[in-house]
Simulated scan of single mutants.
Amino acid sequence: MQKKNSDAVSPRHGIARVLSKQGLASRTQAAGWVREGRVSVNGRVVRDPEFPVRQGVDTIRVAGETVAVVERRVLMLNKPRGLVTSAKDEQGRDTVYRCFDGAGLPWIAPVGRLDKASEGLLLFCNDPAWAATITDPERGPDKTYHVQVDRIPDAGTIAALQVDVDIDGVRMSAKSVRLLRSGEKNAWLEIVLDEGRNRQIRRLLAAFDISVLRLIRVAIGPLVLGDLAKGQWRELGGEEIAALSVSL
């Protein structure tokens, strides 16, 4: 009976998943460690990434070092235009990790993405489970963007952008759109999204024959980019992380 209660408190999960949730590596990287024989459970080397373990009960070692719970760390980067949001790029292009060169950081992964031509606020975290709550299309916090476009949209167009449009079989709209400022031939819009589809703003504007000149993410929920310089990063404090979680 006691064993059943212990198992209930500590459910079994695959070893690669556990290592990932510990914030040590991505699930793919952790699976690679397991297959290479670098991981042991209770003193025995395992090579199956799905080998079941109980976090907090079984003793897990990687390369001989006991795995301890890693403190959650969240960083924000002001992503420059031209960098790919990826750890590695098959085409050899510069990635966002260039901005962390020499920082001596533990494993961190992007929380969501900004495409190569986009700029602004990009989060990184070593906790995949927490990151998934931020990127969840239904429960995640709103994302706010400042977008320079190649013409000056009238009030009717701005209103239409906030109504579902069928784009390649997918219904898309912005939560809110407002005109920030305009010049003779172009304008800046503030666009808020409450979901995160691939290239959503660019695809939505293209449906109205509007081209994007610049796209900058300036906020995720209550967290604002502020005056963080382009290409620079900083670590979030506990209150900022808590505020993001509360906004879900």
Rank of each mutant, 00 (worst) to 15 (best):
S118R: 05
L19Q: 03
G221L: 01
L215S: 07
P153I: 08
C99R: 01
G64I: 10
K175G: 01
G14W: 03
R217I: 04
V18R: 00
S26G: 07
L193T: 08
K79P: 09
P128A: 09
Q200A: 12
L19T: 08
L193M: 11
I220S: 05
V57D: 01
A8C: 00
E195G: 04
A206M: 04
Q91V: 00
S118E: 11
S118I: 12
D150K: 06
Q162S: 14
I60M: 02
Q232L: 13
R214M: 02
R217P: 13
P52Q: 00
Q91P: 05
W107Y: 15
R35T: 14
G238W: 01
V147W: 14
L121A: 02
D48K: 13
L105S: 02
V192N: 05
R234A: 03
I134P: 07
L236M: 03
V177H: 01
V69H: 02
V147C: 06
V57T: 08
G92S: 08
R199G: 13
R113P: 10
L215G: 12
P11I: 03
P137N: 11
R197D: 04
K230N: 14
C99N: 11
V57Q: 13
D101E: 15
R181L: 02
G102C: 07
Y145Q: 13
G156Y: 03
V165Y: 05
L204A: 08
D166M: 15
D142G: 00
V163C: 04
R81D: 09
H13F: 07
E240L: 06
